[in-house]
Design a protein around this nucleic acid. Sequence first.
DNA 1: TTGTAAATACCCAAAAAGGGTGAGTTTTTT
DNA 2: AAAAAACTCACCCTTTTTGGGTATTTACAA
Lengths: 210, 210
Amino acid sequence: MIHAILLYEDNKLLRESVCSLLGMADEYEIKGAFADCSLVEKQVALHNPDVILMDIDMPGVNGIEAVKKIRAFNQSAQIIMLTVFDDSEHVFNALRAGANGYLLKKDISDKLIDSIDEILTGGAPMSPVIARMVINSMQQQQKVRDNYKLTRREGDVLHLLSKGNSVKMIANALGVSIDTVRTHTKNIYDKLHVNSQTEAVSKALNEKLV
Amino acid sequence: MIHAILLYEDNKLLRESVCSLLGMADEYEIKGAFADCSLVEKQVALHNPDVILMDIDMPGVNGIEAVKKIRAFNQSAQIIMLTVFDDSEHVFNALRAGANGYLLKKDISDKLIDSIDEILTGGAPMSPVIARMVINSMQQQQKVRDNYKLTRREGDVLHLLSKGNSVKMIANALGVSIDTVRTHTKNIYDKLHVNSQTEAVSKALNEKLV
DNA sequence: TTGTAAATACCCAAAAAGGGTGAGTTTTTT
DNA sequence: AAAAAACTCACCCTTTTTGGGTATTTACAA
């Protein structure tokens, strides 16, 4: 089966080199190669591509915005970002917007074909350094966790608080008096250096304490 | 440079096949191959490996616990999980615990060597299906976001609430009266179907609304 | 055995939040 | 220009939360 591909890349040289790279593989067909995203919705709707290769930094509509526009009506196209940006801001915004893979331009010649294969079989191709960033972002969260030395019971209370439970509900759930829960929350406030339920929950969730 | 590797895998057959696989590459040296993690701390401390290959499902201490133990004193070893589990529970727990890569056993023969290379150069090797899960988990979060139709001001208020600010602080920050902020919070409660600050913050943070 | 930490519970007073209503002003949309 | 939506503010009343204490029982460790 031949897979349809759309390419968005404002740099003419790179656009053409990607085209010729893919031209050599006869299981792919480039249905279009565009220098900007002004008509991205129509183009995607028209060609219904299997894979979209999307630059981020383009004049007019940038690639991340384009991804959002595409995802508003199409969830099936597989989108790989092709870009020079390896900062977390760009990476996470692109992935959150709905991109399925993220290749740095320096890896294109090496890995583009493999990445397209991979994305079509359900994978999520990423440049190694990008993959590491994604993993790191998950781990950073965890690290803060062990630093407050909550007791088991305090942990229970904070957990329930973070689920949106009121003190009354927690007392009921744990089978203790409201005042007991209050004592625990006070101790939690001390340990987290906060002084309200909302702040505790905010800190707990923002730092993945629960 | 020769890289030191430790292997934890309770299945004898697989353990030996990984050993022989790595034995063929002369830039790696398996310093130890163990069937359980009971002595993992001592072994890691002793051999100070560059890479640790870790099964999840092992008798006694499981691989995820082992990773936590290792990370308590060693951040430099690169840890790749080798497992059959491709459910999000196992994957995310392992990655959060501090694993740097996650290979499904079915991909070992194909990708183990590549993955070790990749992890040593700062990448985060993952089986394609795992990479996709990680990406998906970032996107899922985003999806819920657009469903509550908060006004701009309500969004501001919810954002500040989620940072742990009190109503008083928010009123001050936005330069409006306390009652105004209270009105906004009440409207937010209606839209989120909650009825307390804590619940709103919980929902906002758990569903990545902010 | 004697501390010490944890979990439990209670009291009081002040502050904040929750729920409701009404209403004027500004912005946006049509 | 008119209508709709958003933003603003104020007041009422009730419930919850917070901050400051004190105190008992259990459990585990020095």
